[in-house]
């Protein structure tokens, strides 16, 4: 069957199936299992209403459990096992305790990835939030601010792979004494007269060239959220500051920023989550060569290039561990809100 047709059939079956499931299961509950008539009508209605939420929830819970909760458990298990092919050709998973973690921590590439990820974690959320805050504050005060916002926000829609191509063109280097077509080298050569530099191969600094791509994408996100927060600041606090003779910088840093600190933290953590999982940009631009490895790409290499599921799962667990503080914090916030 042609894939497009299969897609169409899937939509029909998927959507139709979901609707049919919800409708039929409700019918079954109300008409067959606990009919709202006869001597026990009242009790039946109550029972049906106790079960109904679970009918509504079942498909979602099933999918969540299978596609997100189960993998967490399974990854823990895999990270503690080694895949062994036996003499008769079957594979078994042998329990090896922490051998995979030990093996991983002996790999310099892993520590390179850890170090780079920490760099990313410091630089990208900080700069994205700072630029976002700057853009939000500036665009809020001019009549064409919405157009400007929309344009700064636009990279959000571009895939990491697309962004990788866009920025590779910017970082491009041609042989010396020919016209440079990458803008960075064109400026560098015309200013200094030095030979052009293959920017993505310069150790250490190339990490920052990759980070710029993500900052470029995430600034729009930070700007949109922070701009809404800035608008929510009570006018009186700003007016009181003006009356007291504060200059615009004081107003911004001493009046506005403290009031949106909560939102800044949310933006910061959201971008942190993106950074922890960053894969596409590194994969497409350097594939971890020249000292630019990051955890997610390291893991991908272990899983699908080296085909070592044990170490791959162990490195996935490292990412999970790094995410856990944010997870706990989010859950606690959500619970506090519901009370």
């Amino acid at each position: 069957m042609h894939p497009a047709l299969a897609g169409l059939v899937t939509i029909v079956i998927g959507v139709g199936g979901c609707l049919a499931y919800f409708w039929l299961s409700n019918q079954f509950l109300d008409k067959v299992l606990f009919p709202a008539k006869g001597p026990q009508a009242g009790r039946n209605i109550n029972r049906a209403n106790q079960i109904r939420p679970w009918l509504f929830l079942f498909p979602a819970l099933f999918a969540l459990g299978l596609y997100l909760a189960y993998p967490v458990v399974e990854t823990i298990r895999l990270s503690l096992t080694e895949r062994v092919t036996q003499a008769d050709g079957t594979t078994v998973y042998e329990f090896v305790w922490f051998a995979n973690y030990v093996q991983m921590s002996a790999d310099p590439k892993f520590w390179e990835a850890m170090f780079n990820n920490m760099l990313w974690l410091i630089v990208v959320p900080a700069l994205s939030t700072a630029f976002g805050l700057l853009a939000a504050q500036l665009t809020d005060r001019i009549w064409w601010g919405n157009v400007a916002k929309s344009l700064i926000f636009m990279p959000m829609a571009i895939s990491f792979v697309g962004a990788a191509v866009i920025w590779k063109l910017i970082y491009d280097a041609r042989p010396p004494d020919t016209n440079q077509i990458g803008v960075v080298n064109a400026i560098y050569v015309s200013l200094t007269g030095n030979d052009p530099v293959q920017l993505l191969t310069v150790p250490f600094w190339n990490n920052f060239f990759l980070m710029i791509v993500l900052i470029w994408i995430q600034t729009g996100f930070a700007m949109v959220i922070l701009s809404a927060a800035l608008r929510g600041i009570p006018e009186e606090t700003v007016e009181a500051a003006i009356v007291d003779g504060a200059n615009p910088f004081q107003i911004f840093f001493k009046i506005k920023v403290p009031q949106i600190a909560g939102t800044i933290v949310v933006v910061w953590t959201t971008i942190t989550l993106v950074v922890l999982k960053i894969f596409d940009i590194v994969f497409a631009m350097t594939n971890g060569q020249w000292g630019t490895q990051v955890l997610a790409n390291y893991m991908f290499n272990q899983l699908f290039v080296a085909r070592d599921w044990g170490v791959g799962s162990a490195s996935a667990m490292v990412i999970m561990l790094l995410v856990t503080p944010i997870l706990v914090w989010n859950v606690r916030n959500a619970r506090r809100e519901m009370r």
Binding site: P71, T75, S313, A316
Partner: peptide, 11 residues
């Protein structure tokens, strides 16, 4: 916030 990287191999 569970990274989908975790889900790759098990799934």
């Amino acid at each position: 916030v569970v990274p989908l990287q975790l889900a790759l191999i098990p799934l």
